[in-house]
């Protein structure tokens, strides 16, 4: 049994494919690729596969992670597998890292502590205004409604880094995290105006989503969110692409 963590991108119209359908997509993709993936036991065996954090419909991403279990790696290297799998995919979902993990590694889902995002508003003034709104307030209270009660969340505590410029963001992030800006730069136009970049705390205790900030900000703007990466670790965040 081999445990592997895959990083993948989900771009373009694949944003309209929900999480369950994406799982079904991967199951068929791995079968087409001939990957020797492990199956659960029982009458309806399914591939052993779990995701760090399901991506919502309408979001794209260049930093998704999934854990799989393999019976064997076969005759190819990890990089060769990336090529094989991608040649059987649709060009919009592509594997960008194939990392063999120690067998006792915890699921990515339970390691997740933060995720970074790029929010494209296509409007420089709006982006600058949001950045100002974020920086000038000591606390930004988002009220999370649940069926029974409502809970106040301070987004200033949940969003450790926010900037409207990629290089600034990447630099600020590198002071508290091990990030991979070289990878990100392959996929995003870092000079694009009107974008907001942020690192949000994630996981089962506190799960911050970029929409929360826009909800408190309250001005009607259209935006497209792309997830850039996911991190594990407390205090110092480490990109999940780091073995």
């Amino acid at each position: 049994m081999i445990k592997a963590r895959l990083r993948f991108i989900k771009l373009g119209e694949m944003q309209y494919i929900g999480h369950l359908d994406l799982m079904r997509y991967f199951q068929k993709l791995f079968r087409r690729s001939g990957l020797d993936i492990s199956y659960s036991k029982g009458f309806n065996p399914h591939q052993i596969m779990s995701f760090a954090s399901p991506l919502g419909v309408g979001l794209t991403s260049i930093g998704e992670y999934m854990d799989i279990t393999l019976e064997s790696i076969g005759e190819y290297t990890e990089n060769e597998w990336i090529e094989i799998i991608n040649s059987h995919s649709n060009g919009l979902v592509l594997i960008t890292a194939f990392i063999i993990m120690p067998e006792n590694i915890k699921p990515s889902m339970s390691l997740l502590s933060a995720a970074s995002y790029m929010i494209d508003t296509s409007d420089s003034d709006a982006a600058a205004d949001i950045e100002k709104f974020f920086n000038e307030n000591d606390s930004i209270i988002y009220i999370k409604e649940t069926k029974k009660s409502s809970k106040e969340i301070d987004l200033k505590k949940g969003i450790p880094v926010l900037a409207s410029d990629y290089d600034t963001f990447s630099h600020m992030l590198s002071e508290i995290a091990v990030n991979d800006s070289e990878y990100e730069k392959q996929y995003i136009d870092t000079g694009k105006k009107g974008c907001i970049y942020m690192l949000c705390k994630a996981g089962s205790v506190l799960n911050i989503k970029p929409d929360m900030l826009f909800e408190v900000y309250q001005k009607e703007i259209d935006y497209q969110i792309m997830r850039l990466d996911m991190y594990s670790g407390e205090g110092r965040y480490v990109s999940m692409s780091v073995k």
Binding site: E13, R32, N90
Partner: peptide, 24 residues
């Protein structure tokens, strides 16, 4: 490019019905 704008695709049930690009 999808014929439908993003706001339309996001407002309908199962937008994957309209985007094509399926395997094969």
């Amino acid at each position: 490019k999808p014929a439908l704008e993003r706001n339309i695709l996001m407002s309908v049930e199962k937008p994957a019905r309209y985007i094509g690009n399926e395997i094969n």
